[in-house]
Amino acid sequence: MINAVKSKIIPILFLTIILAYMFFNFQGLSSFLATSDSDNIESVRKSIENAAVQCYALEGHYPPSIDYLKENYSIITNEDAYIYHYEVEASNIMPTILVFKKWKE
């Protein structure tokens, strides 16, 4: 009788452990992917900022637009994945650079 109970409990316990592991592993994966997205956005924003600073160092003014950076400093943008906000106040003041991930449905 005890062996019959053990033979039923062990597979159920094993299955429960596997399902719990998969659940918590999935939570970790989704957390990792969310962190990865924010890291990518910051990396894209930083590359635009670095190109703007390089332009200022070489030309004595910040670039008037992201298009200027694309044409003269080899910046590549992905308008399908990101929204870019580049606002210039003056040629000697660092522009406001924001990058947002586009919402996909």
Rank of each mutant, 00 (worst) to 15 (best):
A81M: 13
S91N: 09
H61R: 15
S74P: 04
I66C: 02
Y86I: 07
Y84P: 02
S91Y: 14
Y62W: 03
H85T: 12
H85C: 02
D80C: 04
E59F: 05
D80W: 01
T77R: 10
Y86Q: 01
S65G: 06
E89K: 15
G60Y: 10
H61C: 10
I66T: 08
Y86M: 06
E87C: 01
V88D: 00
E89T: 15
Y56D: 00
Y82V: 00
P63G: 07
E87W: 00
A81C: 10
T77F: 06
E89V: 13
G60E: 11
Y68F: 14
S74A: 12
H61L: 11
S65Q: 07
L58V: 05
Y73F: 11
D67K: 13
L69P: 00
L69R: 00
D67V: 12
Y56P: 02
Y73W: 06
A57L: 10
I83N: 12
P63S: 11
E59A: 03
I66D: 04
S74C: 09
E71G: 07
Y82Q: 02
A90V: 03
Y73I: 01
E71H: 12
Y62I: 01
I76Q: 08
S91M: 11
E89D: 11
H61E: 14
G60P: 12
I76A: 13
K70Y: 04
S74R: 13
Y73V: 01
E79C: 02
P63W: 01
I83Q: 08
Y86E: 04
Y62C: 00
A81I: 11
Y82K: 00
D67R: 14
I66A: 06
Y68I: 10
I66F: 10
Y68S: 11
N78M: 04
E79P: 03
S65A: 08
G60N: 11
I83Y: 08
S74V: 07
Y56A: 09
H85Y: 08
A81Q: 14
S74D: 12
Y56F: 15
S74N: 14
Y86R: 06
L58W: 04
N72L: 08
Y86H: 05
Y86P: 00
N72D: 13
I83F: 08
E87G: 02
I76H: 04
E87T: 09
G60S: 14
G60C: 10
E89I: 15
E59M: 01
Y62F: 12
P64W: 06
I76Y: 06
S65K: 10
D67W: 08
E71M: 11
Y84N: 03
G60T: 14
V88S: 04
E79V: 09
D80N: 12
E79S: 15
T77S: 09
L69H: 05
H61W: 07
I75R: 03
V88W: 02
